[in-house]
Design a protein around this nucleic acid. Structure first.
Lengths: 181, 181
DNA sequence: ACGCGACATGTCAAGACTGTCATGTCAGAT
DNA sequence: ATCTGACATGACAGTCTTGACATGTCGCGT
């Protein structure tokens, strides 16, 4: 098995394994769901990476459409690489999350300032969480449990994340307010 | 206010605002707590960045110790920059989390494989979560709520994250097992 | 005295990512 | 006919990050 090293190629393999797509469609996927919670990448990373994956035989162009679009699919080797990557446990994956960083640094501020930020987090996570829950409730036909399940698992994950942060922020506010300076 | 752009300088300002440290100590902080959940950086990024911050007057060397060690503290300007950064809401921070990516890609696998990974996640999050809870219970004197609070807020955040992922993985397992292929 | 391991900082090249610019296509509205 | 905006891919320079290599100090055990 090749050493792909980075996560981007595996993200692409994963998306293509669920459904063949063009680079343009992959770019849109990174701009929404995936890029929002898991891994972001712009089209300037994606297109060259697709070419590299194609060279190594992990993906292949299965359709050429209008405006020069190329639809890629994973090959058997590509799927094997993806499977092997997902089944191999890394003790600690790369993490880089600016929002979480902000939460960590909160205690560097004076309590009054920290409370301002925490209240904003409470609001924001409530909005985003219920937005996701609404999407899941309104469109059960689009992301049915038991079919591809991709959007479904991811959406539930996102919703729970927001709920967890929401609860944490409320807890933190209470702590800060009850602890006198 | 300068445009520092990246998160690393702010992470450093935040850590130094809580407590003056040397580059070496900062590196250790990134290797544990902070780097595990929020933002990682090696010493090869940290030392040059400290020099840049010092040039711009956001941090300053307040102590020189053995083996050429330099302890940095934030200046008033540095604290102002940090505060401004934390109080300014970005609609979406940069996110890059390999573990979350793996969870997103799970549905690209066949259910049997996905279940293997999910069960491992259940175990892992249970262990890590209770490890954090134990640390918080055993050492309330080290990270008292109301003092710096840094470790305390962060530890609680981490614990809740693990618990959320744990719950999600259990939920996902149930979904996958109850939905026949 | 000696050696080991942790302490402490640094350089450098290779690789990866971002943002900007560039190019061209196709569908639908006016 | 023309225009606009979404579609679709790509090149490129500047920046950031990673991993390998380098250098030297100090405390402790033997």
């Amino acid at each position: 098995m090749y050493d792909l090293g980075m996560s981007l190629p595996h993200a692409l393999l994963g998306l293509l394994a669920v459904e063949p797509r063009s680079g343009y469609e992959l770019t849109k996927a990174f701009a929404t769901d995936l890029g929002r919670y898991a891994w972001q990448a712009g089209h300037t990373s994606i297109y060259p990476e697709l070419n590299r994956l194609a060279e190594r035989g992990l993906v292949t162009v299965t359709e050429e459409g209008a405006r020069g679009s190329r639809t890629y699919s994973v090959t058997r080797e590509g799927y094997a690489e993806l499977r092997s990557w997902l089944l191999t446990w890394r003790r600690q994956g790369k993490v880089r999350n600016e929002d979480v960083l902000r939460m960590f640094l909160l205690s560097a501020l004076e309590p009054a300032d920290a409370l301002v930020v925490l209240r904003r987090i409470v609001e924001h996570t409530a909005e985003e969480g219920s937005r996701l829950r609404k999407i899941m409730d309104d469109a059960p036909a689009v992301i049915p449990p038991g079919s591809d399940g991709f959007g479904y698992l991811a959406a539930e994950f996102g919703a729970r994340q927001f709920e967890a942060v929401h609860g944490w922020a409320l807890w933190a506010i209470e702590k800060l307010e009850s602890a006198p300076a």
